[in-house]
């Protein structure tokens, strides 16, 4: 059993490497966009079905934002809800059967996300890389949980942190905002926030993926034989862990949005808190 830390390269679209995780994240994005247009297109006064779900999520974050930041919090609700929706959708799509197991074998090189992979294909044969899988066929899954890729999670983390600081400058003024960082440790803490944002989400989702794969193939790993029966039993073994992963997917999406909100409230000065100073 080997699960790569990196997303596997599927093909190159010009200079752009299309990996399996970005494919999944596009699917999640597309799904949400279609849902949003369908629901927004025939928006009803009396909600029903998916509209209800969206309204519920929106109201949940609105309640929390106004609780933490007062009335000003309500303008950040779209960002929080988008973060939550994107993360939970891609997490739950990542748990679906076929993600991580549906794919193809590639013989020439260990799949890698970097764009040098394709030109370096010949070198891989000649110079044995540190990865001892090169040379023999390597399994490349077609889909991979979008958040089991550090590119996705760091993209989200950087967006959030940039947003938070832009909002801080907008609300309090540049000099006032920079006054937060008299202590150099504060600057370190800002970077560690990005790291912890990115790695938390990635770690949870990736560890979940490893856990699911390990549990599904536990009999194969122990006995060393791959029988069809072991696969069937593995399916039963993995069921409770699947439920756990659905729960973790929700919790991580929620935590991401909640942390965004609480970091935002550290820097965003509302009128009330300013007069309080």
């Amino acid at each position: 059993m080997h699960i790569s830390l990196k997303p596997e390269l599927l093909f190159n679209l010009g200079p752009f490497p299309v990996t399996n995780s970005i494919l999944s994240s596009w699917i999640a994005t597309l799904l949400l966009i279609v849902l949003a247009i369908v629901v927004g297109g025939n928006f009803k006064r009396i909600p029903s079905g998916i509209q209800h779900v969206f309204e519920m999520i929106y109201e949940m974050f609105e309640g929390m934002a106004t609780e933490v930041m007062g009335k000003a919090g309500s303008k950040f609700v779209p960002l929080l809800a988008t973060l939550f929706l994107f993360i939970i959708t891609s997490n739950w799509l990542g748990v679906l059967p076929g993600v991580g197991s549906l794919g193809f074998y590639e013989t020439h090189v260990a799949a890698s996300s970097d764009s040098h992979a394709a030109p370096a294909a010949k070198d891989a044969h000649a110079a044995p890389a540190k990865d001892d899988h090169s040379g023999e066929p390597v399994f490349v899954p077609l889909f991979r949980g979008a958040n089991a890729d550090l590119n996705t999670t760091f993209a989200l983390a950087i967006i959030v942190m940039v947003f938070i600081h832009v909002m801080g400058i907008k609300s309090a003024g540049l000099s006032h905002h920079l006054a937060h960082f008299k202590n150099p440790l504060e600057i370190v803490s800002e970077f560690s926030k990005v790291l912890s944002f990115g790695f938390r989400l990635f770690g949870n989702v990736f560890a979940g993926e490893v856990l699911l794969t390990a549990m599904a193939s536990i009999l194969v790993i122990i006995t060393g034989k791959s029988l069809l029966l072991y696969g069937v039993i593995g399916g039963f073994i993995v069921t409770p862990f699947l439920m756990l992963e659905f729960f973790v997917g929700f919790i991580q999406a929620f935590v991401f949005a909640m942390l965004t909100l609480s970091f935002l409230s550290l820097f965003y000065k509302t009128e009330n808190s300013e007069s309080h100073h």
Partner: peptide, 19 residues
Amino acid sequence: TIMILGMAFTEAVAIYALV
């Protein structure tokens, strides 16, 4: 809510180790 936030911060340490 507060508990989940606290747990998220604590869990981050374990995540660093995992990374």
